[in-house]
Nucleic acid binder design. Structure first.
Lengths: 227, 227
DNA sequence: TGTCGTATTATGGTATACCAACATACCGAC
DNA sequence: GTCGGTATGTTGGTATACCATAATACGACA
């Protein structure tokens, strides 16, 4: 989609290095839940699973380690980072700050293209919700927020939020599923979008906070039950 | 100091791997300004400078890349990340959110040990200021904030702030130096500490915001002048 | 004289070889 | 039977060798 917007004559040249692919694959594997918290990431096993050499695997692991998705135990190697409620709670708190701020900033500068993109994202969200397609719902939610952060010019905050999100990905998937049942999932998002389109910064921030407060509450109950 | 608090019979075993040392050295080199933004980080050169093999250097670079301190250009290798004002501004914005929130949280739960540590950090800060020792001032400021974040239980936010700080380290050093001349450097910190000790969450947050607003303003003028 | 092509070199990407340390299991002695 | 020691295998840490590519410089031809 939107092939024409920015892609001049540029030859793609796809410099996708093996390492980048490996990072992506591993990150996805962790996010999707193929590896669970605490699982050991044995290098040589990953080598044959990914079909690359140890150098590639190791550098990928270093990257994910800095991201917080993997932690390396002394003399025992990398494991998938565990997530307990105290840490998850901190992540939700930070998200609340950053996302509310981004939404407010976005609401302050009206921009028709942004509004259009926001509503498009909302439609996709609703469609995924109606189709009961969790994977799509997850993706659509991400797009929705990305529109907000980009429009606000908060690139760095968006990077941080994405990184945090991948750390709570499983929780997030569960939360999205649960939210569907309790309150209409996209209803929250619609409220956020409406406030932004109305240039209501405070309203947008409040809507985000409400949404995340709910999500955090669900996450808490999930995590504490699990324990 | 405080040998007895937690160090049972545990053998230290210093698992400091070469990689961790390399990361630390490189990060410091970048922070201190030994490498400037845009400088190429030629792997083989770093190898002989650090006295380690390429594997170590490369993994260290991957880590710093994920931290945002280094970026790897396609087919040209890693360079030290450049910092322009739009990005620096975002970093100051995020710091304002996180630090104000941490200070408020810290102020909400009174804790004598924290207050003592805060005042100790303040003394060090004042001492470094009086001695006109920029390096010490920088370190003392870091300690001051660390006390706040730890007391608030905001470990993850602290990690993020540290990472952001290393990306604007040169700015920060300049800013601290400049702040000294304009308004008394530690005066801001003292106001923050006072509000926390008085359990005044809003006051603490306001004080932090004021401080960072000032710092950002100085940083902006520095960056735009430089251009 | 300018432009195109080729050769050389430097650099990053990838793979692999080697080593040290930890864990485990087995065996012997008390 | 239990405790201790030794041997072996697995794993991560480190170093190095090899390859592909991109930049640069030099030379030839128009």
């Amino acid at each position: 989609m939107e092939q024409t917007q920015d892609s001049d004559l540029r030859i793609d040249h796809s410099p996708a290095t093996l390492r980048q692919l490996a990072v992506e694959r591993l990150r996805q594997a962790i996010i999707v839940g193929r590896f669970n918290g605490g699982d050991r990431l044995v290098e040589r096993t990953l080598c044959e699973q990914l079909g690359v050499s140890r150098s590639v695997v190791r550098e990928a692991i270093r990257y994910l380690e800095a991201e917080g998705l993997v932690e390396t135990l002394a003399r025992s190697g990398p494991v998938v980072a565990r997530l307990d409620w105290p840490r998850a709670r901190q992540i939700y708190d930070i998200r609340r700050l950053l996302e509310a701020d981004a939404a407010a900033a976005c609401a302050r500068k009206p921009d028709d293209a942004t509004k259009a993109r926001l509503n498009a994202a909302l439609r996709d969200l609703q469609a995924a919700f109606d189709a009961a397609a969790p994977q799509d719902l997850y993706a659509a939610t991400t797009v929705f927020y990305e529109v907000i952060f980009r429009a606000a010019g908060h690139d760095i905050a968006w990077e941080i939020v994405q990184r945090l999100n991948s750390r709570i990905s499983r929780l997030r998937a569960l939360t999205l599923a649960t939210t569907n049942r309790r309150v209409s999932g996209p209803a929250h998002m619609a409220r956020i979008a409406a406030a932004i389109c109305a240039n209501d910064a405070e309203g947008a921030a409040d809507a985000v906070r409400a949404h995340l407060g709910d999500a955090a509450e669900i996450a808490r109950s999930l995590l504490e039950d699990a324990r």
